[in-house]
Design a protein around this nucleic acid. Sequence first.
DNA 1: TATTTATGATAAGAGATGATTATGAAACGG
DNA 2: CCGTTTCATAATCATCTCTTATCATAAATA
Lengths: 291, 291
Amino acid sequence: MKRIALYHLETLTWIARLGTFQAAAERLHTTQPAISARVREVEDQLGIALFRREGRRMVLTARGRLLIDSCEPLWTGLEQALLDISDFAGASGMIRIGSGEIAAASCLPAFIQAVERDMPGVSMEVELDLTARMLQLLLTGARDLVFLAGPVASPNIRTQPIGALHLAWVAGRAVAQAGGFARPLPVWSLPDPSPIHGAMRDALAQQGVAARSINSCNNVRTLVEIVANGGGAAVLPETMVRGEIASGRLVEILPRPDRMLHFEAAIRAREQEPLVLELFRRTAGLQIDPG
Amino acid sequence: MKRIALYHLETLTWIARLGTFQAAAERLHTTQPAISARVREVEDQLGIALFRREGRRMVLTARGRLLIDSCEPLWTGLEQALLDISDFAGASGMIRIGSGEIAAASCLPAFIQAVERDMPGVSMEVELDLTARMLQLLLTGARDLVFLAGPVASPNIRTQPIGALHLAWVAGRAVAQAGGFARPLPVWSLPDPSPIHGAMRDALAQQGVAARSINSCNNVRTLVEIVANGGGAAVLPETMVRGEIASGRLVEILPRPDRMLHFEAAIRAREQEPLVLELFRRTAGLQIDPG
DNA sequence: TATTTATGATAAGAGATGATTATGAAACGG
DNA sequence: CCGTTTCATAATCATCTCTTATCATAAATA
């Protein structure tokens, strides 16, 4: 029995949470036979059955449920203690990070570098998508930690501000030389639920300029290219277009909006895993330079 | 880090308690290189040093001490939970049992059989010695659970009654036919600190008989042989000499003393190990037949 | 009902892990 | 200076654990 390790308990917990061996295998980045074997190991060590076949699924027996319930807090505490004393240098596992594209450009590289430096055993799986979809993935458990722009408020999500960026109105050189917003211009931004979209509408209203049309593209780099090639104007984080402005491909055509783009890190409000909680805590140290 | 198992924590704990890898190896019934390897495994998994060389010993680093202190209660709790849900069927390890010789004859076989039936993973190391020495071994940690005769009271020891046996005055057939205690007889018993010795003195006083001499032998079976061969009289548990009485080798030469021989199980008052505590709890069910 | 899909079990082979024995190096004690 | 104690290291072996591939069964679907 002494051979039961932390990963055995972790495995049982994820089977209980997800309902199938297969799902637990995917969550733990291993194979289904490995999960079966781990369960069998624990059952053999304890001499009792933890799961019972039911249809094509496995369900916890009464004792299995008892084991999960009584061990989970102890396991979590033990893992926490082990991680604490090693300053998380001993952390291992896969953390699934989600990010909006703008947040990715601003926050992700520094964060990933810090994790790789301080927690060599942790691997990361990064997925970029729109903020709205990111939150969905976070709530369903497909992501553990997401970075996103704009304020998010939900009772099921815990957020933390990690900095803000100045915005700038930019257009291609030709458009700028033609007078910029002297005449209504096509305006490009990310699709509607995006915070950049909201910032763009606010800026239009605040600065009293007219858009000839509102267009969207779900990829910021492509959006920059469209604007740089004369497609119109866009509101973008200044740091993301600083290079293009310096090189003259893009020109700032209006004063910078007062409103800044605020970034946040988010996790599930009910998150228990020490590693995720610690990484969330560490996002506070990112300190984005507003540009 | 997820590969850290219960036996890793157990190993660290015993090193901390005993001070050397070698001692921990002996306590855990393995070899010293195995202990070194376990320590190295934990250190590698956590990425920190737990021990520092000091002379020819290894001492805990600050973090090592922190780890032991913070993990030990969690580890104990986890082990307890795992054992509880399996009704201790998953228990494993070595339990060191001590016993006085009389207690061994009365209690040990049933107890050992019960442990082997209910906890197939547990192995036992039994040592017989005098009661006084047994208590010493218990307090120094050389034994985990001892069976002994006679009431024992010590703040450092926790005891539990497990039954009592009637005593009988016996002598060899020849001595009995010569009148028994009509004349003072040589009396044989265990050495002085033994409870049988006390019972013998009480019985002498209570029944108003005189001993020609008080002799002792530290081995009950030998003592029986001495008495059976005409060496004198002895006070012994009736069940231990029932066979000899039936066969006529020994004869009861006085009424049975009122005082019975009480047996107790004992563990250290500060005992923490779930397995030892459980075995101690189960000694209550031994129910010695008083004969 | 027949077919497809989902879920686990099982087997074989490779690699990692952990234990043992034997031996070496360093510190301590006389 | 020599013997003892303590831990490290190396070689070897057994066991454990993972992966891949395949099979069996149950549920869903056509």
